[in-house]
């Protein structure tokens, strides 16, 4: 038994373009360790020798495979899938984090291998049995995967990130295999670079709902508290649709699923699709003027109060 992890790279800053292994990939390595086998990490990209070197230090990694080629400069599934397919037969499992990168890529690999896969795994029971959510987390399914090669995406918030150890796994280079029909072409990307922790990995998340009233108020009320708590800022779908916050700050079933130590919901009513994205938080704190808001059914601590006054008071006190 041998497990292949497909690494996802993040580019830290537009200026330095320094690449690193995304924390979600370290969660995928933790999931692989729960299965228990040799773990190879596949690093795909352009000029990725330094980042491959980083991967060799991650605790428990057996080997790092590098496919370094200019065609891999951007993570197009049409290019990455044939490469993963070319080495898949060496592995019992192929695992990638269920990020937009992993969700885009792995089903394409599954079809090339003619296997069904299991997405968004939240618990590994054994090498072929896993738990995954259905109905936005309303139900949990235990599934058995009897395919010869088992493909999984794992939900990064459900597995801790594996840290570095005093080790340096060997590196092997593998040949580029690409989409020779040029089915797709990268045009551009707009990634928000900010000082704040990322929503999906922050220890504290503060979210605002539509009752904040405007984009200006949203920033004015939440930002000072987020600064004090070194928190990521999230938003409900209603707040995003109203233009108060950018699309990628949406927390919920159709946005980002979060599981921070503390989730502070400010003026959030608690729609089912929002709850689906926060219910695995260690602690949920809710502030809402409406005592009947569904969020209070999920909150460990709730305060019925004016959100503007309350948030200002907490910000001043902390």
């Amino acid at each position: 038994m041998s497990i292949l992890i497909i690494a996802e790279l993040v580019i830290a800053e537009l200026v330095t373009e320094e690449k690193s292994i995304k924390a979600a990939t370290r969660s995928a390595i933790t999931a692989a360790k729960a299965i228990g086998a040799e773990i190879d990490v596949l690093v795909i990209g352009e000029d990725v020798n330094a980042v491959a070197q980083q991967a060799t230090n991650i605790q428990g990694v057996t080997r790092v495979l590098v496919a370094d080629n200019s065609v891999y400069a951007k993570p197009l599934a049409e290019n990455f899938a044939p490469l993963v397919h070319s080495i898949a037969k060496n592995y019992s499992h192929i695992i990638v984090a269920a990020t937009s990168f992993g969700k885009n890529l792995l089903p394409r690999v599954a079809a090339l291998l003619d296997v069904d896969m299991v997405s968004e795994v939240t618990r590994i029971i054994d090498a072929s049995t896993y738990v995954r959510p259905l109905y936005a987390g309303g139900l949990n399914a235990t599934v058995q995967n009897n395919e010869i090669i088992k493909l999984l995406t794992i939900r990064p918030t459900a597995f801790d990130a594996t840290q570095d150890a005093n080790q340096a796994a060997p590196i092997a280079t593998i040949a580029a295999v690409t989409d020779d029909k040029h089915l797709s072409r990268f045009v551009s990307e707009h990634i928000r670079h900010n000082e704040r922790p990322q929503l999906s990995t922050a220890r504290v998340v503060i979210s605002g709902g539509r009752s904040l009233g405007s984009a200006e108020k949203f920033q004015e009320v939440l930002t000072p508290l987020a600064n004090k708590l070194n928190a990521a800022i999230g938003a409900t779908r209603a707040a995003v649709d109203a233009g108060f916050a950018p699309n990628d700050s949406q927390v919920g079933q159709t946005g980002t699923v979060v599981a921070p130590d503390i989730y502070i919901a400010i003026g959030v009513s608690g729609a089912a699709q929002h709850i689906a994205g926060i219910k695995d938080s260690r602690m949920i704190v809710a502030i809402n003027h409406d005592p009947d808001a569904p969020i209070f059914q999920w909150a460990d601590y709730g305060l019925v109060a004016d959100l503007f006054e309350t948030t200002a008071a907490i910000t001043a006190a902390l």
Binding site: L76, T99, S100, F101, K181, H182, L183, S184, R185, F186, V187, S188, E189, H190, I191, R192, Q198, S200, N247, D248, T256
Partner: peptide, 11 residues
């Protein structure tokens, strides 16, 4: 995509 948007052109 996570953290923003990506534009691709497909045949």
């Amino acid at each position: 995509i996570d953290g923003g948007q990506e534009t691709v052109e497909l045949n």
